[in-house]
Computed example of a mutant assay.
Amino acid sequence: MPEHQALGRWKGVSIDVAVMDGVMADVDLSFACMFTRELDGNPRGGLLHLNQALSGMLMRLRDEGVFLGEPMETLLISQPPAGMAARAVMVIGMGDPSAWTPAVTGRAVATAISAAVQRGVGSAAFAPSLLDSGLTPQATSGVAPVMMKAATRTIDAQVSIAAYGLAPAPSLRRWAFDVGAAGFAAATEQFRAALAQLETG
């Protein structure tokens, strides 16, 4: 089992941090992020693992212009191949990596939660794929609070839409942030602190 920590709950959704990637996540809908290119020319880590699990099709689709990785562009893989734990995978575009800011990943989290709720899934996991695309740990050090704020705000929005009678109550009950093993402890503390701050207002 991958290492994981439960952080808490928000409007009926349990929020976790786990050492896994888009291939390993045993959820209804797994999210991965992909830029228009990798800074050093090659994917690594979870993004490489996902491309390998798809027999190279992820990079091929981008090379062919089917999915460019433009900001908030989405690619839904509703029939993942055998060997992938998730029942479906959605790749979210992030634009050019040289223009990345934490706000871009915040938008991707919001896009992912909205998609999970709209598809009526019960569990979802989100891999930001930042280090996998060549960004440095120093450049991405402040992203966890932005991701957590985006997640809670989007959950709030989906609950409000349901409360107005415009949609069913969200079925999402479990949300996991995927992180690498090397940064697991630090990421867990950053996410936990961010959630605690949001809970206290």
Score class of each variant (00 low, 15 high):
residue 1 M to I: 10
residue 4 H to I: 11
residue 8 G to I: 00
residue 8 G to L: 00
residue 10 W to V: 01
residue 11 K to Y: 08
residue 11 K to T: 00
residue 18 A to V: 14
residue 18 A to F: 08
residue 18 A to H: 02
residue 19 V to R: 12
residue 23 V to K: 01
residue 24 M to G: 00
residue 25 A to T: 00
residue 26 D to A: 13
residue 27 V to D: 01
residue 30 S to Q: 06
residue 35 F to D: 13
residue 48 L to W: 15
residue 48 L to D: 12
residue 50 L to D: 11
residue 51 N to Q: 09
residue 52 Q to P: 00
residue 53 A to I: 13
residue 54 L to P: 02
residue 55 S to E: 01
residue 56 G to E: 09
residue 56 G to R: 10
residue 58 L to W: 10
residue 59 M to Q: 10
residue 59 M to H: 11
residue 62 R to V: 02
residue 65 G to I: 10
residue 66 V to S: 09
residue 66 V to I: 11
residue 67 F to R: 05
residue 67 F to H: 02
residue 69 G to K: 01
residue 70 E to T: 04
residue 70 E to R: 15
residue 71 P to K: 00
residue 73 E to P: 00
residue 74 T to Y: 02
residue 78 S to I: 03
residue 79 Q to S: 15
residue 80 P to M: 07
residue 81 P to D: 15
residue 83 G to P: 04
residue 86 A to P: 11
residue 96 D to N: 12
residue 98 S to K: 05
residue 99 A to N: 08
residue 101 T to N: 03
residue 108 A to H: 12
residue 109 V to M: 09
residue 113 I to L: 11
residue 117 V to K: 00
residue 121 V to S: 08
residue 121 V to Y: 06
residue 127 A to R: 02
residue 130 L to Q: 03
residue 132 D to L: 05
residue 134 G to N: 05
residue 135 L to N: 07
residue 136 T to I: 09
residue 136 T to P: 01
residue 137 P to D: 05
residue 138 Q to G: 11
residue 144 A to K: 04
residue 146 V to Q: 02
residue 148 M to A: 08
residue 158 Q to R: 14
residue 161 I to L: 15
residue 164 Y to F: 09
residue 164 Y to I: 13
residue 173 R to C: 02
residue 173 R to P: 00
residue 176 A to H: 09
residue 177 F to D: 02
residue 178 D to C: 14
residue 180 G to H: 05
residue 180 G to I: 01
residue 186 A to D: 05
residue 189 E to G: 01
residue 192 R to K: 15
residue 192 R to L: 10
residue 192 R to N: 13
residue 194 A to S: 13
residue 195 L to Q: 05
residue 200 T to V: 13
residue 201 G to W: 11
